[in-house]
Design a protein around this nucleic acid. Structure first.
Lengths: 245, 245
DNA sequence: AAGTGGTCTAGACCACGTT
DNA sequence: ACGTGGTCTAGACCACTTG
C-alpha cells in the first residue's frame, strides 16, 4: 500500500529522505517550486500531516522555504551547507565534512585537580579532582581541532583507560558515568593561541581560533562535564542558516 | 470554550507562551517533570496535536527535553540562554540581551565599487557598484559591533537616504529592493582587528573578534546582499543549545 | 500493567497570494 | 475564484520506560 514503506524508520523520516532525493534530482521541483502538499500527499500515499512533518524537517535544515498561499520553494544554496554550528556531532564528522580525512594526532588522559573556573561551572567544591581528556584531531595530517574535556570523579562510575575512551564524550558518559548527557550548552568565542598551543597546532603567525566552551547537563540539569574546544576556523567553517518567516 | 483563546495568534503559539510562563512559575512542573501531554490537553482544552506543536517549539529552544515512555523534563539551564547564534535578529536586540543599552555610534552610507570577492559571492560582474552601509553599534557607549553591508545597485529599486536606512537590512530590502530576503547563510569565523579597526572599536591589545559573513538570498535563490559583521565576543556571547536525542 | 511520548490518519476550515 | 500552505480536531495504535 504505502509506496515508500520499506524499512523500520518512522514514515515521515523515510518520506523526508525520499523527498530530499527527489528534490536533488529535480523530480518534484518545477521552476524552483515544490509540488503542492496535496499532490505530494497523493504521490506518496500518506496523510498530509506526514508530508508536513517531513517538509518541516527540510525547512529546519534550510533546504526549503514555505510561503503561505504561494507554495514551497527550494533553497538551492541552503542545500549545500554542511556544517551547522547548532548541530555538530563528532569531531571526525566535522573534519570529514570539511573535506579532510580525520585522524587522532595525540591523546592524553590525565588525572588532575580541576581549575576553579571549571569547578564553578560544574557546581563542584573548589579543588575537586577529575579526568582531563586532551586530544588533538587532524585532517589530512594537519592539526585542526584541539579538545580538552573535563570529567569530574564525582560523576564517574568507572574509570576508562585511554584505549577505551570513545570518540564522543556523550558515549563516554553513557558507558562510564552515573548519568548520560541530556543536553549541552555551548558558548562560542574567538581566541588566539599562546606559544605552546601555536606549536602544538602548528599555527602560522597570527591565526585566530574559534573556541567552543560546552557544559553538558544530565536529565535533571546537573552539570556533568566541561569541554573546551579550539577549532581552526580557517579550515573548518561553521555555518548557520536562517529562514526568514 | 477555549480557556486561553484571547488574541489572534495561532492557538499553538498562545499555548506555547502560556506553557512557558507556567513552566517558569513551576505551575505545571512536578519534580522537574512536566505534566503529561494528556493532562495538558485537558487543562488547556485543546487537542493533543496542538499541545505537541507548542511543546515542539519549547524543545527546539532547548527549554524542555522529551523522553519516550518517560516524560518531559525542564532544562533549567537551557531556560536561561538568551543569544542563540542560529536565530539572531537585530543588532540592537543582540546588545540588549547581552545586558547593555544599544545605540548607534556611527553610520555611513557610501557609493562604492564592490570588491572582487563580494562580486563573486553575489554573482555580479566584476567591478559592479553598490551601496556600502557601515555602522558601529554601541552598548552603553562602548563599541560592540561593526557591520558592513553591501547592497548592489542591481537589486535597488530606489535609493534610501542615510536617514531612511532601517536598523535591519531585511527591512531595507523590503522597502528599497526588488525582492525581499528569503533566507540567509552565515559563515562564522574568528579574526583579529587591524590598526584602523582597533582604533575605531577601541580594542585593547590582542582582543580577537567573531566574524559573521552573511549572504542574503531571495525567494528564487538570487544572492542579494552581503554582510560582514564583527562582534566583540568578550561582551556579546553567542550560544548554541543542543538537545541529545 | 500502566503511563508516557511517538506516529499516523481523515477531515475540516482558515488565511494568504495569484490570477 | 482558486490553489496553496496554516491551523486544529478526534481518534487510533505503537513503542518505550517504569513500577
Amino acid at each position: 500500500m504505502k509506496k515508500y514503506a520499506v524499512n523500520n524508520a518512522p514514515l515521515y523520516l523515510r518520506v523526508k529522505d525520499v523527498l530530499l532525493e527527489a528534490i536533488r534530482s529535480g523530480e518534484i521541483v518545477v521552476d524552483g517550486r515544490l509540488l503542492s502538499e496535496e499532490t505530494l500527499t497523493k504521490q506518496f500515499n500518506v496523510s498530509r500531516a506526514t508530508i508536513r512533518s517531513a517538509l518541516q524537517l527540510l525547512e529546519k535544515d534550510g533546504i526549503i522555504s514555505k510561503r503561505h498561499g504561494s507554495g514551497t520553494i527550494v533553497n538551492t544554496e541552503g542545500l549545500q551547507v554542511k556544517i551547522r554550528i547548532d548541530e555538530f556531532k563528532g569531531f571526525f564528522e566535522l573534519i570529514r565534512e570539511s573535506g579532510h580525512t580525520p585522524s587522532i594526532g595525540e591523546k592524553k588522559l590525565l588525572e588532575v585537580q580541576l581549575e576553579k573556573k571549571i569547578c564553578d561551572v560544574l557546581d563542584l567544591d573548589n579543588g575537586s579532582k577529575g579526568l582531563l581528556l586532551q586530544r588533538l584531531f587532524w585532517g589530512d595530517g594537519k592539526p585542526l581541532i584541539y579538545a580538552k574535556e573535563y570529567i569530574p570523579f564525582s560523576i564517574l562510575r568507572e574509570r576508562p583507560t585511554i584505549e577505551e575512551v570513545p570518540e564522543s564524550i556523550f558515549e563516554l558518559a553513557d558507558s562510564y558515568c552515573t548519568d548520560p548527557v541530556s543536553y549541552s550548552i555551548t558558548e562560542i568565542s574567538s581566541t588566539i593561541a599562546d606559544k605552546k598551543l601555536k606549536q602544538l597546532m602548528e599555527l602560522p603567525g597570527n591565526e585566530t581560533l574559534i573556541r567552543l566552551e560546552e557544559i553538558h547537563y544530565s536529565r535533571v540539569n546537573q552539570p556533568l562535564m566541561y569541554s573546551d574546544i579550539l577549532v581552526r576556523d580557517s579550515i573548518i567553517r561553521f555555518h548557520a542558516v536562517r529562514i526568514r518567516k
